[in-house]
Design a protein around this nucleic acid. Structure first.
Length: 423
RNA sequence: GGAGAGGUGGCAGAGUGGUCGAAUGCGCCUGACUCGAAAUCAGGUGAGCCCGCAAGGGUUCCGGGGGUUCGAAUCCCUCCCUCUCCGCCA
């Protein structure tokens, strides 16, 4: 949600933001809804002031006195007016709130123009993609792949996109999780193991509801949602709370499985480990002082990036253009790892600054000790990293002539062996 | 799942229809005293929204929602949560 004051005072900024994100939003309707709500609010508050003034007077009068009876009759009429107008006010408020929720976050000035993936800016590229093994094949074509990643039985047990990880497949997945968490801790993020089912209020605060309801798995009869990312429980940890400004930035990291229905994404990107409905991921999250959030975004990107460096995988960083930004994001970097066998880039991390957009929805503020004032914090999050795609990249980039996969040295202490075998 | 108790400001804890955003204590801030500190004394100390250039004014909030009433922290309904005991269980 945007600051209502900004919408009223600088509507041109909001219009420009909508245009940069290439969204179709009826902004005039938002302005009208806001104006209507304020007009009704003022009238109701005026009537309430009358009511309150009379209360004190009536409390001082004797119950049976004629003065009391007169006042009572008068106030009955005011009371019914208040009730009537309050109903209208409530409707106006709801209309206004819904209108406000259609407004996207403003993109940062440094975000490039554009509406398609091709218009994302390649911010930097690292490692040699050309030198990758000439005989590299997509990970699903490696002999023995199905023994470590059993999609068929996963389909039988649950459904398509829910593979079993077996033997060294499971072991490498666990090693990556462990490596990511250890590195996160080293970078100052406190490890958290959050709930992986969340309620509707939490899903709304981070923006999954109402827009993306169909993308989440939902449980009945409790109406809890399987998290699509640890961002949801982590961000909501401080929902409706006021943090000590001196304690910022607060850094947390969490490993969780993530669940995504990926409705409507049937196509060629779904083979093997590229896109599955349940996957493991380590997420980094920061709550920061507004003045520092863009520096913190660079730091966050660096924290995620370092993992790819340590794993020795070729990767690149994209600065996402306006049209490719999520609804709630002000600026976003995507980290993509090179999958040598598929000869394509796989997104393994998204590092975003949400500024106060999520914090306003979730009511997460900080209080300065000097001024005593509260302000909305800025939230940032990023994957570090998504496990299955990194695993796929390791297989494709490190496959040796004998059919074994060389484990990156940084991972060996966690994996316990220098090679993964499909046999 | 069953029975009972309870949800009030940063914390503890009063308040059972009227002048209550709410006593009191603790904490915190400011001032006095002091070389300084402690102790003591005095004062201050919630959040949001609307109007206003501002000064300031108005209004909402006592777990959430709804109701009764001229008026609700207080009465009624409903939902949520916490605690204790019992049952079940990794």
């Amino acid at each position: 949600m945007l600051d209502p004051k900004l919408i009223r005072e600088s509507p041109e900024l909001v219009r420009a933001a909508i245009a940069k994100k290439h969204l179709a939003v009826d902004f005039d309707a938002v302005l009208a809804a806001d104006a209507a709500w304020r007009a009704q609010l003022q009238e109701v508050e005026r009537l309430r002031a009358v009511q309150k003034g009379a209360n004190a007077a009536m409390a001082a009068l004797a119950k049976g006195s004629p003065e009391f009876a007169a006042r009572l009759a008068e106030m009955r009429s005011v009371s019914s007016q208040v009730k009537e107008r309050e109903a209208g006010l409530k409707a106006a408020e709801e209309t206004c709130r819904e209108a406000m929720l259609t407004l996207p976050n403003l993109p940062h000035a440094s975000v490039p123009e554009g509406s398609t993936p091709e218009e994302n800016v390649v911010y930097s590229t690292h490692g040699d993609t050309a030198a990758a093994a000439p005989g590299a094949v997509p990970h699903w074509d490696v002999p023995g792949f199905a023994r470590l990643f059993d999609f068929e039985r996963g389909s039988k047990v649950t459904g398509a996109g829910f593979p079993f990880f077996i033997g060294d497949g499971a072991r490498l997945s666990r090693a990556l999780i462990n490596f990511f968490l250890e590195e996160g801790a080293r970078s100052g993020y406190v490890e958290v193991s959050p709930p992986i089912l969340v309620n509707a209020a939490s899903a709304t605060a981070t923006g999954q509801l109402p827009d993306k309801e169909g993308q989440m798995y939902e449980t009945t009869p409790d109406r809890l949602f399987a998290i699509p990312t640890a961002e949801v429980p982590l961000t909501n940890f401080y929902r409706d709370e006021i943090l000590d400004a001196e304690a910022l930035p607060v850094r947390r990291c969490a490993y969780t499985p993530c669940f995504r229905r990926e409705a409507g994404s049937y196509g060629k990107d779904v083979r093997g480990l590229n896109r599955v409905h349940q996957f493991d991921k380590v997420e980094l999250l920061k709550w920061v002082a507004p003045a520092t959030s863009y520096d913190e975004l660079e730091g966050l990107r660096g924290d995620a990036e370092r993992l790819l460096v340590k794993l020795g995988l070729p990767y690149r960083i994209l600065l996402m253009c306006g049209g490719e930004l999520g609804f709630a994001q002000s600026k976003k970097y995507d980290l993509e790892v090179w999958a040598a066998g598929q000869r394509r880039w796989l997104e393994v991390s998204s590092c975003s600054n949400f500024e106060a957009f999520q914090a306003r929805r979730a009511q997460i503020r900080s209080r300065s000790r000097e001024t005593g004032r509260t302000e909305l914090v800025h939230t940032l999050n990023g994957s570090a990293l998504a496990v299955p795609r990194v695993l796929a990249a390791i297989i494709e980039n490190n496959l040796e002539a004998d059919g074994r996969v060389r484990i990156p040295p940084a991972l060996v202490p966690h994996f316990g062996k220098s090679h993964l075998a499909f046999a």
